[in-house]
Structures are given as C-alpha cells and as structure tokens.
C-alpha cells in the first residue's frame, strides 16, 4: 500500500544486473594489478637489483683483467692498506707511476719501465704526477654511512676478495658484483665455513681446488694446526735428551671428565682450545686416539682423517676456523656504532 511516489522510486532505482559482472571483473583486475605492483615493488627494491651492476665510467680506463688477471699483480700491491686498516685505500698516482710514470717522473733517478708513455688514456695520470693533484676515481662499492665495514678483519682471517667483489680480476671495468646488503652479510656471518680459505690464498681469486687438491691442502693445514696448538711432547724415554724423539700431541678431555670453567689463574686456557679443536675436527676424539692415551698425535690424526674421501671447502673452512678461532661476531655493534 506504499504510495505511488515510493513505488516509482523503487522501480527506476534498481541497479542494472550487469553491474554484478563489472564488480567481479573489477575485483579480478584489482587483484591482478595488486599482484603486479607487489612483484615490481619486490624486484625494484631487491638489493641484488639495486646494488649489483653499478659500473661508473672511470677517468682512466684501468683494467683489472689486464693487471690482476693477465699480469697477475697481487691485489695488495696497489691496495696495500687492506691488511692494516678498515679501508682498502685506492693507490696513489705514484703507484701507477712506478710503471707508467716514465723514467724519472716519480722519483728523481728512478729507473722504471716507461709503459705506454705516450698513451692518450694515461694522460690524466701523467698530468696528476706533474701537478701533484690526485686522480678523481669514482666509487664503485659504497655502504651507507652508518655501516663500519673493516677490510683488515676479513682479509687477514681467510676471507678472499672474491667473496665480496666477485671475479674482479676478470673485469675490464669494475662493477659491483655482489649486493652487499645486511641480509647478504649476515648469511655469511652465520655460516662462514665456505668463505674461509687458507690465509695465503686470499688474493688468489681463481683458487678453486678440486677434491684431491682439497685433501692435500686439508692435510697441510692440519699439520699447521698441530704446530700452532699441540705442544711438543717427548715420546720415548731415551736417556740422551738430544736423541730423544718427540712429537706434537693434541690434548683433549675424555668425555666424563668435564672441562673446568675458566680457571681463575689462566683464563685463556690453551687446553680448552685444544679440546674444542679435537671435538670439532674428529667428532669423537677417542676414535682417532688409537693408543687411547688421551692425546692424538699427528700420525693418528692423519690416519683417522685419511679414511674420509671427499673433502669439501666446508671441512677446510671448519678446520681453519677451529685453528685460528674464527667465529664472526653477529652483534649489531660489529657494524653499527
């Protein structure tokens, strides 16, 4: 019994039925666009996409591939402060001048090879040497101001340049190879074994030993570890000390007898360090200790470890970390202060 006015309003104001389809369509493409925006957003802000690939055009086209790759110049020849300071300093013009500076341009009377003395590309270098104004190289790898990365802490502890800079000895023009984001750094700090290599191979970017080489290197490092940790112990009771034979024996606490906490007198107890080393490398040291005298000699160790066939970079890394006490710190103040 509603009045006419009402019914007329009711009739002409019913949404056309096709609106339902539009709504469904709208939702569908809204979802689609949302998904698209999410993926673009995710990729656009992915550190690998943002950081990797920065390749600025340097004032002098210096080629690492030529110098470090072909000529096999060691990284530390130019970046000589890498083992002594946080920053691996860009070499002063004088270093380039040693070869490219011409006879006496660097130091009066210096008889140095004058390589490419006339080359146009090296004009800025010669001009720099003359006028004592530095060459304005352009920065490639750059961390935010609140991050305090220290080269010496890594390079002197078995982390090679290739881990963060990639195969820079193959780059004509240096570009950033790795993303160097916080997550990326933390992944390595959390399982650093693959990244640790023998200290003398740090600047050998191409170092990639196969199985056998790994094994021999492992055994060499094991011997070095014994020299560092295991004290010299005399073996047979020969009266004449000079002929008495001695060898290095690694001590470990047999399970059952637990390690004392920090003894008040010597707080950095080498016995504890040896025990850590033994348990880490041999798992259960008793297995390796054939003559069960609670000590492992080098021979016993080599014999035990020979049985293992495939040695991976992880094993070598673990051995090196146990020897040199390398446990990367994960507290925030390691990098942020």
């Amino acid at each position: 019994m509603a009045t006419d006015a009402n019914t007329s309003q009711l009739n002409d104001f019913v949404f056309p039925s096709w609106i339902n389809k539009i709504i469904i369509l709208g939702l569908a493409c809204g979802g689609l666009f949302g998904g698209y925006a999410a993926t673009v957003g995710f990729f656009a802000t992915h550190p690998k996409v943002i950081n990797v690939g920065h390749m600025p055009e340097q004032p002098i086209p210096f080629s690492h591939a030529l110098h470090a790759g072909k000529l096999k110049l060691d990284c530390r020849y130019c970046h000589n402060t890498v083992e002594k300071a946080a920053h691996a300093a860009i070499p002063p013009s004088a270093t380039c001048g040693n070869c490219h500076g011409g006879k006496d341009r660097v130091k009066p009377g210096a008889t140095l090879a004058a390589v490419h003395l006339k080359s146009e590309k090296l004009a800025p270098l010669r001009e720099s040497l003359e006028t004592d104004t530095p060459v304005n190289w352009l920065r490639v790898h750059e961390l935010p101001g609140f991050v305090y990365f220290n080269h010496s802490a890594h390079v002197t502890r078995g982390v090679s340049c290739v881990e963060c800079h990639g195969r820079i000895d193959k780059m004509e023009v240096v570009y950033q190879a790795k993303e160097l984001s916080m997550k990326w750094c933390l992944d390595c700090h959390r399982n650093p074994d693959e990244a640790i290599r023998p200290f003398d191979q740090v600047t050998n970017l191409g170092w990639n030993p196969d199985k056998e080489e790994l094994k021999t290197i492992y055994m060499e490092e094991l011997e070095k570890a014994f020299e560092k940790l295991a004290p010299q112990v005399s073996v047979d009771a020969n009266p004449v000390p000079s002929e008495r034979k001695s060898e290095r024996r690694l001590f470990f606490y047999p399970d059952g007898e637990d390690r004392p906490e920090f003894t008040a007198s010597k707080w950095r107890d080498t016995k504890t360090h040896q025990d850590n080393f033994a348990k880490l490398i041999f798992g259960d040291p008793k297995l390796a200790d054939e003559n069960s005298d609670n000590e492992i000699s080098l021979q016993e160790a080599v014999a035990f470890l020979d049985t293992k066939s495939d040695y991976t970079r992880k094993d070598l890394g673990q051995l090196l970390r146990a020897t040199h006490k390398i446990n990367p710190n994960q507290s925030c103040s390691t990098c942020h202060r």
Binding site: A85, A89, A94, P134, R139
Partner: peptide, 22 residues
Amino acid sequence: CRFENKKITPYTFRPEDRIPGT
C-alpha cells in the same frame, strides 16, 4: 637517477707511513 657517481680520491704521493682512514 639510481646511481649517482661520487668521487673516491686517493693521494698523489702518499707518505709511506700514512694509512688513510686510521
């Protein structure tokens, strides 16, 4: 405008005992 080039300027003749950044 993603990468903005910044200079990283070394010495020309660095005194041998000088380590930049220490």
